[in-house]
Structure formats: C-alpha cells, structure tokens
C-alpha cells in the first residue's frame, strides 16, 4: 500500500475538484460546494489548499509553499514534503521561479505574474459567518445580494472604536458582485489581490468550499467614503534588509522585551539582503 496516484488524489476526485474550480472561476467570489476528502493532514491544517493544489499540479510544475510568509515554518515544510513525496515535482523558495504557490495567511511581497497560480488555505470561507451562523441564511443573503449586515458591522466598529476593527480576513467585494473572505491574510495584503495577473484559488477543506478570483478581476475592500480602507504601517523598517514597504513580524529578542522587526516574507527579505551584498 505504498503506491499512491500522482498527487495522492485519484483521478476521479481530481476531475470533480476541477469541475468545482471551473465553476468558481466562472463566478468570481462565489463559494462552490465540493466533496472534500479526508487528507493525511488534519482539517484546519490546509487540506482545502492541498486538494486544490493536488488537482491542478502537473509533472512540469514547480511548487512553493509558505506559511505566515515563510518557506520554513513547520507547516509549510510539512506540506512541501508531502507534495515532494506524492508528486516528485520540483519545489523552490523563489517566488519568481514557481508556477504554483500554496500559501497560508500571506501573499508574497514579490508581485506575481500571469501564468502563476496562488492557492490560499481558507479556514472559514463564509465572510458573514460571525454575523449569521446559519448556512441556510447566508446562502440566501449571497443569492439576493443582501449584504446590509456586513456594512452594519463596519458601522458599529467605527461607532465603537473610531476604526473598522478588522485587521485580517478583511472582507472584499469581487467583480462588483460577491462579498468574499480573502482568507486570514492581513489587510495589508488585500490591495495585492486587485487585478492580480495570477489566478487566485481558495480551498476550504473542512467547510468543503472552493472559490476563485480569475486574473485581472476587481477586488475591492469594503469601507466608507470618509473612513477609507487603509493598510498597516510601521515606524520601523526591516532589521535585516531595510525594506520599508513589506509586512513586518515583531520579534521579542530578550527578557527586557527588546523588539526587532523583520520581513514576514523570508524569501523577499533574503533576496534583498543577497542583492545588496
């Protein structure tokens, strides 16, 4: 029992998932139900993203896997090794050289190109879930474009905090029609989704939903005219490469609470350090 099909899933399952992907691409931002399978990793650990990647990956592809922006966090390592084992394909850390990137919680700082595919791991696909727990209700709301409650939530945030209090998984409207959860990427990354030349695919394994944003699609973050969407900013720059425009992780380095700020995207940072030497 050591022989697995290429990319682990059997061809029938891949076809079923691809059909769901086609539907998703035809209706940008719409959540397509799909018959997700149990995978060798637990639900919640990327099974949706893995099933999507497994359905689109081919022998000539080159795969990059990141988690929190870095290639060598434990989960990214684990998933990359899984694909090496069941596909035997080339893997890389270089964003430029890859054809498929599977990501958890970040979009790479390096701009993606046409022909690349970005696969997002999604825990909760439904952007309205925390306002309305029932799926029967949220389905109706999407169908009838009854998104009033979403704006109510934003209004309440401003009334209470003076700001929209969503910092990640910030809701967007796709192609002017569906409100979508972009997965728990920091809102810092939302602008990268707008008219991205690469294909963006989203997989939620446990909730069994797939959705997609085709290349060059409008993706706009929800806001008010007088409280426009804004992204995170730091006073500091990266302590290793000096970048002032990337998303920075805060690291506590000693018992006195001294902090360092470093690029979350490890490959972007290393490339900049290498280029300056």
């Amino acid at each position: 029992m050591n022989e697995y099909n290429f990319a682990y899933l059997d061809e029938h399952t891949k076809r079923v998932i691809r059909r769901s992907l086609l539907k998703a691409v035809s209706i940008p931002g719409y959540q397509v139900p799909f018959p997700g399978r149990e995978m060798p990793m637990p639900y919640g650990w990327g099974t949706g993203g893995i099933q999507v990647t497994a359905s689109v990956i081919g022998k000539d592809d080159c795969l990059k896997v990141i988690d929190q922006g870095a290639d060598d966090t434990t989960n990214a390592v684990s998933i990359r090794n899984f694909f090496k084992r069941v596909c035997g394909i080339r893997t890389t850390e270089k964003t430029d050289e890859t054809s498929i990137i599977q990501t958890r919680h970040r979009i790479p700082e390096t701009a993606l190109k046409a022909g690349q595919i970005l696969v997002y791991q999604v825990p909760i696909p439904e952007p309205l879930r925390f306002i309305e727990p029932r799926e029967t209700e949220t389905r109706t709301m999407h169908a009838l474009q009854e998104y009033g409650v979403m704006h109510l939530k934003l209004y309440e945030d401003i009334a209470q905090f003076g700001h929209i209090s969503t910092a990640y998984a910030y809701p967007v409207i796709v192609n002017g029609r569906y409100i979508m959860d972009p997965s728990p990427i920091p809102k810092f990354d939302n602008p990268k989704m707008h008219r991205m030349p690469a294909l963006q695919l989203f997989g939620a394994g446990r909730e069994k939903r797939i959705y997609a944003v085709p290349p060059y699609t409008d993706v706009v973050s929800l806001d008010f005219e007088d409280h426009p969407f804004d992204i995170q900013q730091w006073d500091e720059s990266c302590a290793l490469c000096g970048s002032e425009v990337s998303f920075l992780d805060e690291i506590i380095t000693d018992n006195d609470g001294i902090r360092l700020h470093l690029c979350s995207d490890s490959e972007y940072c290393a490339t900049r350090v290498g280029a300056s030497q």
């Binding site: 639900y43 989960n75 958890r104 209090s165 920091p186 730091w234 998303f247 992780d249």
Partner: peptide
C-alpha cells in the same frame, strides 16, 4: 475528524494575523 482538525489548528503559527491585531489595538 473535522472538529479535532480545526481545534488543533490553533497550534499552527498565527503570528501574522496576531501582528495585525496588535497593530490595530495599539492604534486605537
């Protein structure tokens, strides 16, 4: 299998989302 996966996924790194929350709460 579904519930265990999602509960235990909290062990995965969440420092980027957490960072975003930190930044926002400091600002407010």
């Amino acid at each position: 299998v579904e519930s265990v996966g999602f509960v235990s996924h909290l062990k995965l790194p969440h420092y980027v989302d957490f960072q975003s929350e930190l930044e926002l709460i400091r600002k407010i």
